[in-house]
Write a protein that binds this DNA or RNA. Sequence first.
DNA 1: CTCGCCCTTGTACTTTGGTGCAATAGCCAG
DNA 2: CTGGCTATTGCACCAAAGTACAAGGGCGAG
Lengths: 203, 203
Amino acid sequence: MQNWFIDRQAAALPNWLEALPAARLLARAQAGAAIGPGVLWFRQRSGEAIATTLPAGQPAAGQHWVLLSDEPDEKTVLAALAAGAAGCCNSYAAPEVLQQVALVVGNGGLWVGQSLLNWIVGGSARILEQQRQSAPADDWSALLSERESEVARLVASAASNKEIARQLDISERTVKAHLTSIFDKLGLRDRLQLSLRINGLAL
Amino acid sequence: MQNWFIDRQAAALPNWLEALPAARLLARAQAGAAIGPGVLWFRQRSGEAIATTLPAGQPAAGQHWVLLSDEPDEKTVLAALAAGAAGCCNSYAAPEVLQQVALVVGNGGLWVGQSLLNWIVGGSARILEQQRQSAPADDWSALLSERESEVARLVASAASNKEIARQLDISERTVKAHLTSIFDKLGLRDRLQLSLRINGLAL
DNA sequence: CTCGCCCTTGTACTTTGGTGCAATAGCCAG
DNA sequence: CTGGCTATTGCACCAAAGTACAAGGGCGAG
């Protein structure tokens, strides 16, 4: 598996060469045509944008991209993945780490730091949770009558009793009656708690 | 790198043995004590939950978990990652694929399908977008003073004036003063609108 | 038919929310 | 130092929210 380091100025760090002595070094300008299959390591110096570091498009068949970032963080890694990279690690990582990354990525795997993994999984889990929560958001509507649900939805969007009354063409007193019933059924204190409940935000 | 297949009934599929002839096979009941470092492949049969397939907790040091799912989908893979697995692939994957997965995971990489990668990256991009959108949720905090922001946050979580006063150790009148100022600065009518604004729900 | 639930409304009352006016005090910049 | 912003509070007042008690009519299950 051939490795290619691609840097703005075709400069290699010592740990790179120690890890992968057979790798070739290219300046960003020369990259493009001459590169065959293998792992392409792109160095992102401080302050450089992903867009200038990584080529446009996606890796060619047989190619795998890795971002070598001087200052990696979650957003950088995600952007790199989105841009087609199969991983991201610190430019100054130990040679052993680089060798492992080369092995993993070269075989089609992903390499991301543990913290990012947690972040992704946590974030995705959060998305799933939100989806799960908005499903039993029918929780409340199941407990309420048709009319009560209408009132509840209006309250949740910050309508006043007067406005609700006008909109449903009933008296303000009736709106209050519905609300009292709603609070009772859902165990809530006031319209603000109701709003949070309806909008899927735990109390 | 030792490989272990762990199935409910200690049954192996032919492609597993072809890919990793040196692997050992265990029934789920026997798993636990006898397993050393290496890659642990857990087979998830149709209808089985992740929780029953994968052990509780996280992998021991030197161990890497892979979920072999009969019917993998995005949610399954995410759940597996959240449960400590380093990857997930189809139970019936070709032997070459399994070998690659073993290599990647055994070296600390992640193995997820391309579709899931897109999903994660897309989802995370969505998260970032949400954060960016709620960054102009700094919109409100930028306009408010420190104290006002505290009050706003408390209101947004459905606290009453009395509760806020107690919590911030100021008089209820002061809370009201802050609120009036907040409404004025943000162009809002009442605490319910404030709550929606703070919680990132458009009016 | 009776019981329970829903929808409706009225009067009256308490509580909470929100504003106006005013005052004291600290901090910081011009 | 003076003006502006922030934080604090009091008193008074009005408006909105919420509750208690009561009562009418409709509708479906037993």
